[in-house]
Amino acid sequence: MKVSAILVGAGLGLRMGGSVKKPFLQLCGKPIFLHTIERFSQVNTVSEIIFVIGETEIKLLCEQWKTVLDTYKVKKIIPGGKRRQDSVYHGLCQVAADAGIILIHDIVRPLVRKEHIEAVIEKVRESRAAILAAPMKATVKETGNDLFIQRTVPRSSLWMAQTPQGFEKHLILKVFHEFKNSEREFTDDAEMVEKAGYPVCIVPGSDENIKITTPEDLRLAEALLLP
């Protein structure tokens, strides 16, 4: 089955501060979005990349980066929506007709490993829905409203969700059509699939697959990329 990758980066990026949107921030000499696109273009089974970005950034991408992006399997650059799930839906509407598997990934996770992308794809072939996640290492406490600890949550069964999240095309389209007009804001695509009653499998990933949200994250990503 052909694989389409939807790379989502249409958020406001308010926590980072400054005037430059997160996907365009420089990371070791090139913008974050290009690091991420390169990782997915290295996966042979990924036949197309759809880049979902803020509407105001599309002109810049097309003017300055289209020639480069054409060499990295980027078939379409489209505007996102108000919410992340709206942006993903815009991307889903643009995937190739012959795509069988859809990967959805945050464009500001530039350190995702090629072998982990491939592992998610293989797991989707087996189970229809799978996400990359890292095991919880911290000790988690549950409290009441008064902030007194009520219990320590066993961490052996806890995972930190990451992306890419992969789904059989017909499954994810069905789920998004079911919830596209919902007022509920889903934290990730897997939550929507779970809500629809379908099982989602975990693929163990790496703590290095960070989402760059703050200046500290950017500095950490630079340290991880340096030889």
Rank of each mutant, 00 (worst) to 15 (best):
M1H: 12
K2S: 10
K2T: 00
K2D: 15
K2H: 03
S4Q: 04
I6N: 10
L7K: 01
L7C: 04
L7F: 04
A10G: 10
G11N: 12
L12P: 01
R15W: 10
M16V: 11
S19K: 15
V20E: 15
L27N: 03
G29S: 08
I32P: 04
T36S: 15
F40E: 03
S41K: 08
Q42N: 08
Q42I: 01
V43E: 10
N44G: 15
T45G: 00
I49K: 07
V52H: 09
E55I: 13
T56W: 04
T56C: 08
E57Y: 09
C62W: 03
V68N: 11
L69A: 11
D70H: 10
K73A: 03
G80F: 09
Q85N: 12
Q85S: 15
V88K: 05
Y89R: 02
Y89C: 05
H90Y: 12
G91I: 00
C93N: 14
A96L: 14
A97L: 03
I101E: 01
I102S: 03
L103T: 13
L103S: 12
H105L: 08
D106I: 09
I107A: 02
V108H: 02
P110W: 04
V112K: 00
V112F: 07
V112R: 06
E115Y: 13
H116N: 15
A119V: 07
V120A: 11
I121G: 08
R128K: 15
I131M: 08
I131R: 06
P135G: 12
K137T: 12
V140L: 15
K141M: 14
T143L: 05
L147Y: 02
L147H: 05
F148C: 13
R151S: 06
V153C: 05
S157F: 00
M160S: 11
T163I: 01
T163N: 00
P164N: 11
F167D: 03
E168F: 05
K169T: 02
H170Q: 13
L171E: 04
L173H: 05
E178T: 15
E178D: 09
R184T: 13
R184M: 09
T187P: 07
D189Q: 13
A190T: 05
M192D: 01
V193P: 05
V200M: 06
C201A: 13
P204F: 04
E208I: 11
K211E: 15
T213V: 14
E216A: 14
D217R: 05
L218V: 03
L220P: 01
L220E: 14
A223P: 01
